[in-house]
Design a protein around this nucleic acid. Structure first.
Length: 482
RNA sequence: CGGGGUGUGGCGCAGUUGGCUAGCGCGCUGCGUUUGGGACGCAGAGGUCCCGGGUUCAAGUCCCGGCACCCCGACCA
């Protein structure tokens, strides 16, 4: 059961976040440092993410499979950059069944290696391509500093792995999945993400190019909410993934990988939440409409409950996820606050007045206070509610977009960049992509480049790197990141 | 691994220069009254005061040593 309020966002965003996650019953701490227990309400939210992504994966021709949790340690070492990037955060099993293992087993931090091994077995001919696989799984990374949903030692995610005959095709796949993530984030999670290419410094260990969708949280920090990697032939060479082309020549495949994790749940919380707690976009909300019955006298109960039951059934019939809060030990006022904290988009109150007038009261979560509350007719309620949920979905996206755009500035000089970024806003600047420049920004501000956005603000133009003054062909976002 | 903070019923906390039966609010259980913005009464249950040493007639409180967790940095989806 949730209690009382949460720390205001403006006072302490970090505390606000951990308060909300726990009080809204999304997650709890575990007995093991850095791990989390995902509670039913939080897991339903994750299931919403899964559902929204999974059908998009299938619509783009991918199939789900499952690969083992344990990976031979030697596999990780086959790709030089990959092992270098991941070895500091590996959990390794050295004892099994009471005996020391001949070869230690790594608990997967990601599955490029074991899936590469499988692809090598499965792919012989160009007719076997493209190979389009996704898996829903847990992975483990021994993180130094963790945060509920945003970074835990074990987390849930999906990882797509594909193999193609040409770089053109694998590149197209990489971009397609970046688009899929963007579409999901914007249209389902109502998060106005910015898709773009990572700098070489921020690239995935072993990738040719990494792409990301970057989201702005309400404290101005950036959160990488999804990644799509063009792995080139790096893993194909390391795992010998070869096929015979139509000229009977042996070729290495071109592979990709792409992932979204339970971090997305954190992104939803930190994009939409306010001082009252969560605000969930209707498409993601486990409960879209909560019905609070109100009656003062015994004799009012039956007619109110009759209306509640009837209307709830009508809404369910229209495909709306409805929860009737019939807990009899709590006052309506308590329930209002409770469900607001849990982010339910729409609250419906049904009381004696409504029974008499053939109305219900609807209160929108996206518009606080009296302004968001109105009385509407019971006739045609399902249509009213469905339309209102669409409106709330759009309104949350609009609010988040306006917030983002007002905290994002194109800068012309390094001083400007530094000032903007130190102020927890995003700077859009010409950037040469150089490691030295990136390091300087990090040194001076602790911010990093987020990405080179796919939609460049000045297409076709070039400029001078805001950091070193050298030639730059693209602009990049810089921001502090989670 | 550095810096800061916190460990006392389920949660949030108080507990003075060591002192007597360890308190308060919320929650929980039962009964009754309540219910349009966080209800109320009555009666209950619930504690190795993070762990281990030490000082003392006496330790939640003082000393030493551990451990855990949270927040801020370095590493990262």
């Amino acid at each position: 059961m949730s209690q009382q309020g949460v720390t205001p966002q403006s006072e302490d965003f970090s505390r606000w976040y951990t308060d909300v996650v726990q009080k809204a019953d999304l997650a709890d701490y575990s007995p093991v440092r850095g791990c989390m227990i995902i509670k039913p309400y939080g897991y339903e939210l994750w299931e919403g993410v899964k559902g929204g992504l999974d059908y998009r994966f299938k619509a783009t021709g991918h199939q789900n499979a499952y690969f083992p949790l344990f990976i031979p340690e030697s596999f990780l070492k086959k790709e030089a950059e990959h092992v270098e990037g991941f070895s500091p955060e590996l959990a390794v099993v050295t004892i099994g069944g009471g005996k020391e293992l001949e070869e230690p087993l790594v608990v997967r931090p990601t599955s490029e290696t074991i899936i590469g091994w499988a692809f090598q077995k499965w792919i012989q001919s160009h007719r076997d391509l493209p190979m389009l696989i996704n898996q829903w799984a847990n992975v483990v990374r021994w993180e130094l500093r963790t945060r509920l949903f945003l970074r835990t030692m074990e987390f849930l995610w999906q990882e797509g792995h594909t193999a193609h005959a040409t770089h053109e095709e694998s590149n197209a796949e990489t971009m397609q999945m970046l688009d899929v993530y963007t579409d999901f984030a914007v249209n389902d999670a109502a998060i106005p993400v910015i898709p773009g290419r990572k700098s070489n410094q921020e690239r995935f260990a072993g990738a040719l190019f990494s792409y990301s969708i970057e989201a702005m949280m309400r404290d101005g920090k950036a959160l990488q909410a999804g990644t799509s990697h063009d792995l080139g032939q790096n893993f194909a060479r390391a795992f010998d993934i070869q096929f015979t082309d139509d000229n009977n020549e042996l070729q290495y495949c071109w592979t990709t990988s792409w992932g979204v994790s339970t971090r997305m749940v954190g992104a939803i919380v930190m994009t939409h939440g306010d001082d009252q707690g969560l605000r969930l976009p209707p498409k993601m909300a486990p409960i879209q409409v909560v019905v609070v019955p109100i009656f003062r006298k015994e004799e009012e109960q039956a007619p109110v409950m009759e209306a509640v039951t009837r209307l709830a059934a009508e809404l369910r019939g229209a495909g709306v996820r409805v929860r009737v809060d019939d807990r009899d030990n709590l006052s309506p006022g308590f329930k209002f606050n409770d469900w607001e904290m849990r982010g339910v988009p729409l609250r419906m109150e049904v009381g004696p007045k409504d029974v008499a007038n053939n109305t219900v009261a609807l209160a929108r979560r996206d518009i606080p206070g009296k302004a968001g509350k109105s009385f509407v007719a019971q006739d045609g309620l399902a249509a009213t509610v469905v339309a209102l949920l669409d409106e709330i979905q759009a309104s949350l996206l609009q609010q988040a977009t306006e917030f983002r755009d007002s905290h994002l500035h194109e800068v012309g000089s390094y001083d400007e960049l530094v000032n903007i970024v130190r102020n927890d806003e995003w700077a859009l600047a010409w950037f040469c992509g150089g490691a030295a420049c990136e390091a300087k920004v990090k040194e001076d501000t602790s911010a990093t480049s987020r990405n080179f956005p796919m939609h460049q603000p000045h297409p076709g133009e070039t400029g001078k790197c805001a950091i070193c003054g050298g030639d730059a062909t693209e602009m990049a976002y810089f921001a502090k990141a989670y």
